[in-house]
Design a binder for these strands. Structure first.
Lengths: 344, 344
DNA sequence: CTGAAAGCGCTTACAG
DNA sequence: CTGAAAGCGCTTACAG
């Protein structure tokens, strides 16, 4: 494995000059640079990131903490992050952390605490105060994407306005004339008002109240896992009482909405005549299902999170101001065939 | 940021002893070890992986090359790999590489060529000979999971027997009495016989031939993207000719099967009466769809790939022999309600 | 524009 | 069982 000393020798320069020529930092005569580059190419030299990190203190590596890989939103975010990081010459170290437990403590207490990553991007993960503090103590910029409370000093927060999204989705149904509207909320929505499910639920309640409709207790909000089977099961349960069946459902995510649609069809309902369904996400399958949804662009959000992280690291080539000013990321209502006016 | 010299000073020992006490390599008196550990804990010392890598030549980091994150099989594999790597104290560096192109060349030519990962796990990616050769030249063990041809010297290959899977799925339909069976194959199945879609298609043809049924050209094999919309679209196309409609469909993956089921229902068919559908995967949603499938365990496969990689690195604590002997990974037919005998 | 030297933070023979 | 010393492969002031 050739080292920089080999390149230097072959090019007839010092290691210092070889380093400058290859890294582009510092001035090197054009002719010298060419010689060094030719020498490096000839012997297949590739810089050792470890050695470089040791002296610069930069690893060119970003840690990503994410609770799921196999949920559409998270997978898309991850792809967006990966692409942007790669383009910037950074590596992505993946930590799949869901909930609490020994594994999580190990990620924050050991893996992330070492000098192996320059920054951390946390996707849809509530960072405990001590977790954030530990990262900041080690001068690791943190970018939090989605959910959560306002950030601490060294950290940035990015995300859509989930409360507004819930409100918009509900208002769409209200404007169509629905009054018996159920909400399929994510697990823990009622208990954790600052999480993504909690905020969407809040938006739902805001819209209903504004319309003078006070949703009753369990009959109109059902919590479920934010997946297709979650929505399926909850909808079977929800539509179980034929007495006061809702005419519309606001599902906390598109995957939940798909499950709801399938469950309703299985019960013999005609969609959208007997039940309107709206989701949140803009899932790749939404078009196939004809699902009306509030669309967001997770892969774009991932790209943005990377830009903010690089900027926090002072390694951004960007001129444009970034939307880390606190403004929420964009969303957009996309109306398809799954929502219509209620039957008279 | 405290260094090992600080720990040594505080514990009243040399850096060498501190290193040995903390790493567990080499002998240290029990009492000394305790003093060193107490000192490390007191000042919050955490070893610098870069510095350690530089001298040991090991990074405790494995690169994972994967074409998708957001397809069930791949997401599950990734989660399995991540968990196993984390448990072994390794980091996972993610390279999301789909198809060819400049990005791919950059991953293999730059990112993976550096001394930043000890080994590479490639999931469902056909490695070009020069890509494999480049990794081997740098002494990087390679574990290939899924698809592809027999491995080269320093590499191991793991996967299910996709041809046998295709055959089994088709035989299940044949045994139920179906004779007009269509296959929804993955894109490129006909052109690339050694890929996953190619092998499943091959198994389909083997079973059909053995039953004396020679499938005609395009009427009975349709290729599509291996996703739910892919299966949906292909099925609408397939069932377009009411003349010789198949009574059963073997879908190359569960996601394709879900799309096929939805398309058939949309066309007014009663499932499974009018159409039996079988998939491959054991997707988390298969139960909800009542889908008969040939199940595999991708997260388990990911775990196995890690074990093989660690073994190749001589860093395995395992005693049991591993299934890297060339035997295919296990699969299992799971019969649900989506398949039944054809209508008379 | 270029080079000699120091040093990043570790680990590992080599002695004792 | 422990320590002094060398060295992993780089980059960066500091001179010139």
């Amino acid at each position: 494995m050739p080292a920089i000393a080999d390149v230097a020798r072959l090019a007839g320069v010092s290691k210092a000059t070889a380093s400058r020529a290859l890294s582009g930092r510092g001035h090197v005569a054009e002719e010298t640079r060419r010689r060094v580059e030719a020498a490096a190419a000839e012997i297949g030299y590739i810089v050792s990131p470890d050695a470089a990190s040791l002296v610069t203190g930069r690893t060119k590596n970003v840690g990503v903490v994410i609770p799921f890989v196999n949920r559409w939103f998270f997978g898309e975010v991850l792809e967006g992050i990966e692409r942007a990081l790669l383009a910037a010459g950074y590596d992505l170290t993946l930590y799949n952390v869901d909930g609490a437990g020994a594994e999580r403590d190990r990620v924050f207490g050991f893996f992330l605490a070492r000098k192996r990553v320059d920054a951390v991007i946390a996707v849809g993960v509530e960072l405990a105060p001590h977790e954030l503090a530990a990262l900041e103590r080690r001068d690791k910029p943190v970018v939090v994407l989605g959910g959560g409370e306002a950030g601490a000093s060294g950290s940035a927060r990015l995300g859509i306005d989930d409360r507004a999204v819930g409100q918009l989705a509900t208002e769409h149904l209200l404007r169509l004339g629905h009054t018996r509207i159920a909400h399929l909320a994510g697990l823990g929505a009622a208990d954790a008002p600052l999480t993504v499910p909690g905020r969407r639920r809040h938006g739902f309640l805001d819209a209903m109240s504004a319309a003078g409709l006070t949703p009753g207790g369990r009959a109109e909000i059902v919590e479920c896992e934010m997946s297709m089977p979650g929505g399926h099961e909850a909808t079977l349960q929800l539509l179980g009482h034929p007495g006061r069946r809702p005419t519309a459902v606001f599902a906390a995510s598109d995957e939940v909405a798909f499950g709801a649609m399938r469950a309703a069809e299985r019960l013999g309902l005609q969609l959208p005549r007997d039940l309107s369904v709206i989701g949140v996400d803009g899932h790749a399958y939404a078009e196939m299902f004809g699902l009306t949804t509030v669309e967001q662009r997770p892969s774009e959000q991932g790209r943005l999170a990377v830009e903010v992280a690089l900027r926090l690291l002072g390694d951004s080539t960007l001129v444009d101001p970034l939307p880390d000013s606190g403004a929420p990321l964009p969303t957009r209502l996309v109306v398809r065939s799954s929502t219509t006016a209620p039957q008279r």
